[in-house]
């Protein structure tokens, strides 16, 4: 189908972009890679008054070293993130998860920031941002503010950003020594969204787990941290047994959806099995 008509602006800088967003009002939308927005426009599930295309703002594509953290520009594409040496060294979980997103053509245009701002509960990167304790850098005409990952994903396709705010980047702390990471995604066909996914970061000290952060994809209207698992595995020895019993807590506080890919019960079972696998893989 053909999208409904909209106004189009292509600001050249972040300052211009936030001004245009402020003037455009509630029914304007940011256009990033368009890989989620374009199908919504074509199906007329979204009918915005205006699109603010931030695709030509070069500064938003930068990935830079910021001392004890990386700052990934919102408009860095999946393709770019997967190949970026800084990301591969300091945030390999992001590269690993981005590799599982969609297909090469979609990864050429789809962006890191777009997949987070979209707040799709089936998206792979939101759970990764939670497991890495990332911080979202958001700009508007009112200035810049920081939103911790734990407060960013509010509800189904809803983030904590206001309609006139632009996600400019994400700060990802570099892991210290002893951290291991893994993303375990379950899907049945190529190019498919996760039926359930588990993002996991664990810190080992010798034979014990000292700290773990575990987050779940597609186990509710928004991605969630699995606090129960994190608490249960803390201090336990690195063993199959510890992981399996901690993973029993994976479904606490979740509201898994039921759809043609699986019932809530099936997803709950998957979450338990995948969490155990993800912990084991991250702790190697």
């Amino acid at each position: 189908m053909i999208p409904a008509a909209f106004d189009y602006a292509r600001p050249a800088s972040v300052d211009d972009a936030v001004r245009v967003l402020a003037d455009a009002g509630e029914d304007a939308k940011v256009l990033a890679g368009g890989q989620s927005l374009m199908p919504l426009l074509r199906l007329r599930l979204a009918i915005p008054d205006a699109l603010v295309d931030v695709g030509r703002i070069g500064a938003l594509r930068e990935i830079r070293d910021d001392g004890d953290a990386l700052v990934i520009g919102a408009m860095a594409t999946h393709h770019q993130v997967i190949r970026d040496p800084l990301v591969r060294e300091h945030a390999p979980l992001i590269a690993a998860a981005a590799e599982t997103v969609a297909d090469p053509a979609v990864r050429h245009r789809g962006t890191f920031g777009g997949s987070l701002a979209h707040a799709d509960p089936a998206g792979d990167l939101p759970a990764v941002a939670l497991a890495l304790d990332a911080v979202f850098l958001v700009r508007s005409v009112r200035g810049e503010r920081e939103i911790p990952a734990t407060e960013f994903f509010v509800d189904w396709m809803t983030s904590a950003m206001e309609p006139d705010e632009l996600l400019v980047g994400v700060r990802v702390p570099k892991p210290g020594p002893g951290w291991g990471v893994h993303y375990e995604k379950f899907h049945r066909t190529a190019q498919a969204w996760a039926i359930v996914g588990v993002a996991c970061a664990v810190r080992r000290n010798g034979g014990a787990i000292e700290e773990a952060r575990v987050a779940l994809t597609n186990m509710g209207p928004a991605p969630v941290r699995a606090d129960g698992v994190e608490n249960a595995v803390r201090g336990r020895p690195v063993s199959e047994d510890s992981f399996r019993s901690a993973a029993e807590h994976a479904t606490e506080g979740t509201e898994p959806p039921g759809d043609l890919h699986g019932s809530p019960e099936y997803r709950s079972h998957l979450a338990t099995v995948l969490t155990s696998r993800a912990l084991a893989a991250a702790a190697v």
Binding site: Y8, R10, L31, G34, R42, V106, R109
Partner: peptide
């Protein structure tokens, strides 16, 4: 030089 799905790109882009 890079593959894109031309149904998912606006002509203006």
């Amino acid at each position: 030089g890079m593959s894109v799905k031309s149904c998912s790109v606006l002509a203006v882009q």
